[in-house]
Design a binder for these strands. Structure first.
Lengths: 206, 206
DNA sequence: GCGAAATTGTGAAAAAATTCACAATTGGGC
DNA sequence: GCCCAATTGTGAATTTTTTCACAATTTCGC
């Protein structure tokens, strides 16, 4: 299959969320127009995005909600739960580890790690903060799909090297550094201060 | 000035961060190539991005670090501090309110609000969680530049309406809903579960 | 002062993403 | 069964973004 743009995948994930809302409300069928309105885009965009993966709708009618939900879950690889570790139990890391939204969407946090002896051993909601030195041992013992890196910038690359070496193939990085990883590893960056700075730019220029 | 793409602004913000690192290390001059390497892009991209705002470099030499830092701060509107409120003191909201990274970059959290009586009155790091019913009163009393919305999805639009009505012109939204705002208000969305889902897609398709 | 090396700034080209626009269906009402 | 209204799927057109490529500078060593 042709390579799908990142922006398309992001929109599919959004559509899925909205479709799940429609499904919960018992809506049987939804038009590209309705989905677009909910997601802040255009109906042509919705149809184009979906068309990369096949033809799910009925002309004159729209898309059958439950089928499209199932199909999008499948496309996005959400037909399973993912095991996630969080490395770095600072403010952001501990909030993410406890955030219910992940579990609700199939991302189960199975471990939290830190270097700080004062944090190690602390526990929230059934999770104990472990010593980051145990990372390799734990990863060898039990599969982990995704790692969330919320260490300080200086520590991030080294942690990522260790994660990659232990077989982790997907990383969500909150540290404000560009990470070096082999091509088979997927990395996504989230930088909250940067988001605020784009708002600052917007405030300045309107 | 011609409208600048969001993607360009995001890169400028990244460049700024890297330039600040260079500056701290006493580097006087940096080439587009060096900046690109640090930021995971190309030198042509760096030069093009900067060229939208003028001509800062010297051929054969590169860009003078302190001048470019100053210029980017100015372009991004970072020559001042911004007053930020957080509405919704759940896991994510409270982490954001306490996150040091914002303050370090000039975004000062001056208030945290929630509806939950059990949370109201709790305090961290000099901040007290206030009753969201006091929002309008507080906003009328003291200017707030940016609001971070970390309420549940159902409450977000109503909160945003109230913020906008009270004069807030920039919103960073963590609730998974599309928000309706007048055109003069800037909104940025952050959706962590969505980021994980794009990783899930990546894991599936490589 | 001169030639070589480095590096910017920028039009032009290429690539990518979005929007248009319309034929092809489909279902529903009568 | 037939017509009408709604709506998809998709090439083509348009717009946006990125990359190329190279003339114009600037510094540096000698």
């Amino acid at each position: 299959m042709r390579r799908i743009a990142e922006s398309t995948v992001r929109r599919l994930s959004l559509y899925l969320r909205f479709l799940e809302e429609f499904e919960a409300r018992g809506v049987a069928t939804v038009s590209s127009e309705a989905l677009a309105a909910r997601g802040g885009t255009t109906s042509a965009q919705v149809r184009k995005d979906l068309s990369f993966f096949g033809s799910f709708g009925k002309r004159g009618l729209g898309y059958p909600v439950p089928e499209l939900v199932a199909r999008l879950r499948d496309i996005l690889g959400l037909g399973r739960t993912y095991r996630v570790v969080v490395v770095g139990a600072g403010k952001i890391g501990s909030a993410l580890a406890q955030y219910d939204g992940f579990g609700q969407r199939g991302f189960q946090v199975v471990g939290v790690y830190d270097v700080d002896p004062k944090k190690i051993g602390a526990g929230w909601a059934g999770l104990l903060v472990r010593d980051v030195r145990e990372l390799e041992r734990d990863l060898a013992r039990e599969r982990v799909d995704i790692a969330i890196v919320s260490t300080p910038a200086e520590a991030a690359q080294q942690v990522v090297d260790r994660l990659v070496h232990s077989g982790v193939r997907a990383i969500l990085n909150f540290a404000p550094v560009q990470l070096e990883v082999p091509p088979e590893v997927a990395v996504k960056h989230v930088n909250m201060a940067l988001e605020l700075e784009t708002l600052s730019y917007a405030l300045r220029n309107r």
